[in-house]
Design a protein around this nucleic acid. Structure first.
Lengths: 245, 245
DNA sequence: CTGATCTAGTTCTATATAGAACCATAAGAC
DNA sequence: GTCTTATGGTTCTATATAGAACTAGATCAG
C-alpha cells in the first residue's frame, strides 16, 4: 500500500484518514465480522504511522460501533445483532422478556416496479426493479405484527427465489449471508391509525381498532439504504420505548 | 484540593477519576452552564496530572455531552436546550420546520399527594407531596397536545405559587432557573389509544379518535428523576421519529 | 481611524516511550 | 497427568513534547 490514504481528503487529520481506510476494509468485506483487526503495532507498521495514531483511529471505529476491542486479545469486527437491538425498542406490554423472536410467515413475495415513495427512500429510480414482501409475525400462532417490506432488486437479485423455509424469522440474516448487506442502524418514524379492513384481517382485530405504525429505513455501514419496511401492531399489546438526550 | 479524587474508587483510571471530579463541579453548580472550564494546562496544574491526562478527561465529558469544546477558545459547560431536542423527535406531519415552540396554556395546577405509580417513577414515597399540572399546548390557538405533568414537591417547593405568566411555554427553564434542576436526558415510552371524553374535549377531536400517548421520565445529570409527564397528541398530526443503532 | 501584523492563549494533531493489566499458550515442577 | 510459572502478544494508562490550527486582543503603520 503506497498511497493508502489517497481516497480521503488530504486535509483531514491522519488518524481520520486511517480510520476511513479501515472502515473501507470492513465495508468491502476484506475484514469480516468476528475476525480480529490488525493490532495497534501492526497498523502502525503497515500504514507508517505512530502507534498512538493507529490507536486513535481504532478508538474512532470502536466509538462508532464498527469494532469491539478486548483488552489483551485484540480489536474485533463487530457483528451487530441487529434484529435483537431493534426488538429492544418495540416490545410487548405485559413485561415479557422480549427475548423471543416472533415467528415469521410470509404471505406474499414478488418482483415489482418500485412506487415513487419507496424508490425515493431506497434511493433508486421510480419503476426500477424491487422486491416486495408481505409478512406476518406470530407468537404462539397469534398474529402480533404485520410487515410490508421493500428492497431494491439489484441489491438482492433472486431474493424471490430463495425457499421460504430458509428465510425464517430473520430477514436481516439473509441480507448479510446471501448478499453481504449488513444492517447497522435504522431510522424509525412512528405514528398510529385505526385499522383498515386488510390490517384488521391480518391482525385479527376489529375494524377501526387502534394500531401502531412504524416506518423503518434500514441502513448499511456506509449509510446506503438497504430495506424499507412498514410494520403495524396492536396498540394495546405494543409499547415503544427510547431514550432521548 | 489535597485529596480531590478521594470520592471515586481509587482503582479507577486517573482520567476517569478526574472526569468524575469535573462532573461533580458541574452538577454542584460550581461550574455553570455557558462558562468556560479550566484549560487543559490549568487542569494539569491544579490537579497534578499530565496535560494528556487532563485532555483525556475533558474528552470524556465532551463525548458525554456535558462540555462542548471549541478550538482556540476553550471547553464550555453545555446548556442542553432540551425542549428543542425533544421537539426534534415529535413533530408535525406536514413537514413543518419544527422550530416553533407551541404556546402553553395551564389548565390546572395544584399540590397533591403522589399516587402510587407516579411516586415510584419519581422515586418518592406514595402519598408524599407532589405538584400536578395539566397543560394544553397550542399552535395558532389550535390545541395540538395535552400534557399531564408531575414533579416532587420537595424538589420544587412553591412551584404552584409562581405566576402563570412567568411559566410560559418552557417548563424546563423554570426547573433550571428557579430550582437548579437541569434536565439532560429522558426515557420515553410510546403507545396509542382512542380518545377518551376528556382527551377528545381537550384536543377538539371526535370521541374515539386515534391519539398518540407518550410517557416521559425526565432525568438530571446524576440520573435522578426530575419530572414525569404523559402527553397526548392527535395521531393524524404527529409523527415520532428516532434513530436505532 | 483603519487595516495589517504580532502575540499569547487555547484546543488539536502526531509522535515517542514506559509500564500496567490482561489473555493465551508453552514450558517446567511435581 | 496436573498444576504452576514463565513468556510473548495484546490493549490500556500515563507521561512528555513539539508543532499546527485557531481565537482574541494588543500593537503598530499608514
Amino acid at each position: 500500500m503506497q498511497n493508502w490514504s489517497s481516497e480521503s481528503d488530504q486535509r483531514l487529520p491522519l488518524y481520520q484518514r486511517l480510520a476511513d481506510e479501515m472502515r473501507r476494509e470492513v465495508t468491502a468485506g476484506r475484514w469480516r465480522p468476528g475476525e480480529r483487526a490488525p493490532s495497534e503495532n501492526e497498523l502502525a507498521g503497515t500504514y507508517w504511522v505512530a502507534p498512538g495514531t493507529a490507536r486513535r483511529a481504532l478508538r474512532e471505529l470502536v466509538d462508532e460501533g464498527l469494532l469491539e476491542s478486548i483488552r489483551g486479545k485484540g480489536a474485533f469486527v463487530r457483528r451487530p445483532n441487529f434484529d435483537r437491538s431493534l426488538q429492544r425498542f418495540f416490545r410487548f406490554r405485559p413485561a415479557n422478556d422480549g427475548r423471543v423472536i416472533p415467528d415469521g410467515k410470509i404471505l406474499r413475495r414478488e418482483r415489482e416496479p418500485a412506487p415513487s415513495y419507496i424508490a425515493s427512500q431506497l434511493r433508486i429510480r421510480e419503476g426500477e426493479g424491487a422486491v416486495s414482501i408481505s409478512r406476518l409475525r406470530l407468537i404462539d400462532d397469534e398474529p402480533v405484527l404485520h410487515e410490508e417490506i421493500w428492497v431494491a432488486e439489484k441489491a438482492m437479485p433472486d431474493l424471490v427465489e430463495i425457499p421460504a423455509e430458509e428465510i425464517g424469522p430473520l430477514l436481516y440474516a439473509i441480507y448479510e449471508t446471501k448478499y453481504g448487506q449488513l444492517v447497522t442502524r435504522a431510522n424509525e418514524e412512528l405514528t398510529a391509525e385505526s385499522a383498515s379492513a386488510e390490517t384488521a384481517r391480518h391482525l385479527k382485530v376489529p375494524l377501526g381498532a387502534t394500531v401502531i405504525v412504524i416506518d423503518r429505513l434500514a441502513l448499511g455501514y456506509d449509510g446506503q439504504p438497504i430495506e424499507w419496511r412498514r410494520s403495524r401492531g396492536r396498540a394495546d399489546q405494543y409499547h415503544y420505548q427510547t431514550e432521548v438526550r
